[in-house]
Amino acid sequence: MDISIVVPLLNEEESLPELCDWINRVCNENKYSYEIILVDDGSTDNSWNVVEELSRANTSIKGIRFQRNYGKSAALNEGFRAAQGDVVITMDADLQDSPDEIPGLRKMIVDDGFDLISGWKKVRYDNTLTKNIPSKFFNAVTSRVSKIKLHDFNCGLKAYRKKVVKSIEVYGEMHRYIPVLAKWAGFKKIGEKVVEHRKRKYGVTKFGWERFVNGFLDLLSITFVGKFSKRPMHFFGLWGTLFFLIGLGFTLYLIISKFISPEFNLTNRPVFYLALTAILIGMQLFLAGFISELIARNAPGRNTYLIEDKIGL
């Protein structure tokens, strides 16, 4: 199969028929063998009934329905697990991503040899104050921390080589950091393509200000996990050693001072409490490192989601 199009959705009953017709038209015009995987993230409207109707009319359309709302990352993760195409393309269900971008994205993966292509909505139709300015700041920080030169990490329109989506796990709210996850998994050829951003035609946005706060917390998490998930003792042990040596240095200073001056009162000195605190912190960090090593080496599978129904899978 040439392409899998994974579409996470939440309360998008109005846009789904138009989106699927558009994708069908583009894929048929380019003679692609394809599948559309619609992942219903706990919609409370008529979205799942629409997915069922679309699937009955076109067997290339498949559906996954969550029992409740888990979030976009969970929807993408399950869509990636189900995808069979050589190239996997993700897009939002609100018609702000254009399916006309599919051939260009696929070409950059198949012909140009990229592992991942991220869309860049260079011209946006969002409110400047509430979205554009925070988004630019967020992307600049993420690019600097991750050393990945992208302008729009959070763009829902992306293309992947199949091996990429089968090698990463998207959880929590990590969907905005998929390029970072791919980099940590060993996929270095990550590119960018300017894509069309369309005005919202139906419904309302599902994201608010809290996504920026959560985004920076997730960036810290993914940076730590990417570097130290397989060797947590390297992090905790380093800082544990540093604090322990600082405490040991203060302790030696106190002992030497006591020998030089017998009347020297150890417990009345602030240095005594600094030494005690530093040694205790160092020991706790070492303990945290040992426990993390045990967890990392014996962790069972995670991120299992309750799926209420499936179509065609």
Rank of each mutant, 00 (worst) to 15 (best):
295 I>Y: 04
259 F>L: 15
266 L>N: 05
226 G>V: 12
305 Y>L: 09
250 F>D: 11
202 Y>I: 06
62 K>C: 10
260 I>P: 04
206 K>F: 12
305 Y>I: 07
13 E>S: 06
145 V>C: 12
34 Y>K: 08
97 D>P: 06
5 I>A: 05
171 Y>S: 10
125 Y>T: 15
66 F>M: 11
123 V>T: 13
234 H>S: 15
60 S>R: 08
206 K>P: 10
261 S>F: 07
48 W>K: 06
166 K>F: 02
144 R>E: 14
276 L>F: 09
309 D>C: 00
26 V>P: 05
201 K>Q: 15
215 G>S: 07
190 I>W: 00
304 T>M: 15
242 L>M: 11
58 N>K: 07
212 F>P: 09
68 R>G: 00
210 E>P: 01
126 D>N: 07
238 L>R: 00
148 I>T: 03
178 I>D: 08
141 V>P: 07
258 K>P: 00
60 S>T: 01
262 P>Y: 02
204 V>W: 12
304 T>C: 11
27 C>N: 02
213 V>A: 15
235 F>I: 03
95 L>E: 00
132 N>W: 12
49 N>V: 04
225 V>F: 09
266 L>E: 05
303 N>L: 11
100 D>Q: 14
138 F>I: 00
244 F>A: 11
92 D>I: 04
144 R>Q: 14
62 K>A: 02
266 L>T: 04
133 I>Y: 14
101 E>K: 01
16 L>W: 00
149 K>I: 11
153 F>I: 03
152 D>S: 07
65 R>Q: 12
121 K>W: 05
306 L>I: 13
146 S>N: 06
222 I>C: 02
49 N>W: 01
166 K>H: 10
285 L>G: 07
78 E>W: 00
224 F>C: 05
193 K>Y: 08
104 G>S: 13
11 N>L: 00
239 W>L: 09
171 Y>E: 10
279 I>V: 11
293 E>C: 13
39 V>H: 09
133 I>H: 07
105 L>I: 10
274 L>W: 06
173 E>N: 07
176 R>L: 11
83 A>C: 06
115 D>L: 01
44 T>K: 15
